[in-house]
């Protein structure tokens, strides 16, 4: 692996850290298996690409708008579940397949190239240091800032209500927590993070694609499960750090297995390998300790 490849992998690992934080909020905190992310990741990419290329927006507000669109998508999923009692998994599937059509509409086609356009990474051009070094640095700063903001939020009154709403809904309601509202907010936040990741990924990769959401759910989940089973997770800050670490580790595992010729894997095998990784980790945990069982129950 060359330095160039290495930093490219770091860049993608950082971006998918946001997806992992989203999965942490839905699966771990709210106990809500959310499939919306399969649609909100390409939604973020499509929004950012169109606003930058067709509407000539500055990439920063365009990226922010993409995140807000993601918030809307998560909100709709939670609304279907809370207001109409539609099963959580089904709500997510309904919204993500709707988003597939919506994304094609937004882009007026299956993809939207961003080559040559101004992106958030243009900010690190012309400093005399190659962008492939500065881009991951910029991303690292943004992602760590978001992680810390999330940590702070989860320690506020509202954030603690959200944690209680997921962990023990009956008890939370008896203590004045509007559990439905917490789901609306939490799913909105998680999908805002996912759409933000999509927007950044499109700008890093140079294009938005309607198909780029496939497997995002399992990548997020794999990152959370692997990260939290390796690192200590006694505090919120440790848990979110473990999610970011898991996402990075996952990217490197993928890069190595694809690079290792003796394994004979093709790029298209990634989804299968990911699913196997999740199964192996979950099985390993459940046979090792009660804590593993707890996590498995929460995450499956």
């Amino acid at each position: 692996m060359s330095l160039y490849e290495l930093l490219g992998t770091v860049e993608v690992g950082l971006i998918f850290g946001l997806v992992a934080l989203g999965a942490f909020i839905t699966f771990r905190i709210l106990d809500f298996p959310d499939l919306t992310v399969e649609g909100s990741f390409p939604l973020g990419a499509a929004m950012a690409a169109i606003l930058i290329v067709n509407f000539g927006w500055n990439p920063w507000p365009a990226t922010l708008a993409a995140a807000m669109a993601g918030f809307g998508a998560g909100f709709v999923t939670a609304f279907l579940n809370v207001r109409f009692n539609i099963l959580h998994i089904l709500s997510g599937i309904l919204v993500s397949i709707s988003l597939y059509s919506i994304n094609l509409r937004i882009m007026s086609g299956p993809n939207k190239p961003l080559l040559g356009a101004h992106t958030i990474f243009s900010a690190v051009q012309g400093w005399g240091i190659p962008t492939y070094i500065l881009s991951p640095l910029l991303l690292a700063i943004i992602i760590l800032a978001i992680k810390m903001l999330l940590d702070l939020f989860l320690h506020t009154g509202l954030g603690m209500n959200m944690r209680a709403a997921g962990a023990n809904p009956a008890m939370a309601a008896a203590n004045g927590v509007n559990v439905g509202r917490m789901k609306l907010l939490g799913l909105g936040m998680a999908n805002a993070l996912t759409a933000l990741a999509g927007a950044m990924f499109a700008q890093s990769f140079g294009a938005a694609d309607a198909y780029m959401g496939i497997g995002v759910i399992i990548i997020g989940l794999a990152s959370v499960i692997v990260g939290m089973s390796i690192l200590p997770v006694r505090t919120i800050a440790q848990a979110t750090l473990a999610c970011l670490f898991g996402a990075m580790l996952y990217r490197f595992a993928v890069a190595f297995s694809l690079n290792a010729d003796f394994l004979g894997l093709k790029a298209s095998d990634v989804q299968l390998v990911t699913a196997l990784l999740v199964v192996v980790t979950l099985v390993g945990q459940s046979s090792r300790s009660g804590m593993g069982k707890l996590l498995k129950r929460k995450l499956s």
Partner: peptide, 20 residues
């Protein structure tokens, strides 16, 4: 402590202030 803070929020919600 967090459980206590949660119960406390029942009559005095803390919103964006730290729970504890």
């Amino acid at each position: 402590l967090e459980n206590f803070a949660l119960a406390h929020g029942r009559t005095q919600p803390r919103g964006f202030r730290f729970a504890i």
